[in-house]
Amino acid sequence: MSSETIKLTLKVWRQTESDPGRLEDYQVEINTHMSFLEMLDVLNEQLISEKKEPVSFSHDCREGICGACSLVINGRPHGPMQGTTTCQLHMRHFEDGETIYIEPFRAKAFPVIKDLVVDRSSFDRIIQAGGYVSVNTGGTPDGNAIQIEKDTAREAFDAAACIGCGACVASCPNASAMLFTSAKVSHLALLPQGQVERRARALKMVSRMDEEGFGACSNVGACEAECPKEISIANIARMNREYISGVFGSAKKV
């Protein structure tokens, strides 16, 4: 496939501890086969050669699974392509001469560390609140002793496919983490292994989510539209049911 060189104007968010942040303009000339992050690599090499400070951005696996990459590209988390992380977005989807706005995932619960890098450790704390099955290592029954219907396993997998990137939060006008939290609640609520702690789990995870400063859900649906793993908003409905049955269905005060 033929490749071509295009010129782009980038408006990149720069921010440090002492500087509240602003957009800065850069010009790059790049090959359309590059990924979006390779385009930023080119920019950084350019800046380093001019002895200027490179742009900080999060990334690691560059194959769409680790969830490290983020970026709001032209107003959309992970850019314009459906079901695609920033690292899998390629420059052939941009036009010569285009201006691209690149900003961090913005949310109160995701403070900016530097430039485009944000702190998403609030997600870890939501999982620590109850996103697990309380089993120790060893002494577990044989794998086939717990049988799971194929469709149930599939549905649980669909929820478990969340990569914890935070695009749902960044896309939500309320900066809500409902899609992220509900994906984990659903994954475990659907499986027999998750039944014992089912009610307590929903209550604990939701309350931690609130404490972390995420907003409430007002059914906008942007999270589902922007999720690079296309996690369904139906998980939020399920979490709400879990939460309500947790509040009213449990004799124990949580």
């Binding site: 099955v133 060893g138 994954h187």
Partner: peptide
């Protein structure tokens, strides 16, 4: 034992 452990944790293996 690994498979048993992972199933118990709720790893959604193919069925």
């Amino acid at each position: 034992d690994i498979i048993d452990q992972c199933v118990a944790q709720g790893v959604p293996f193919a069925r």
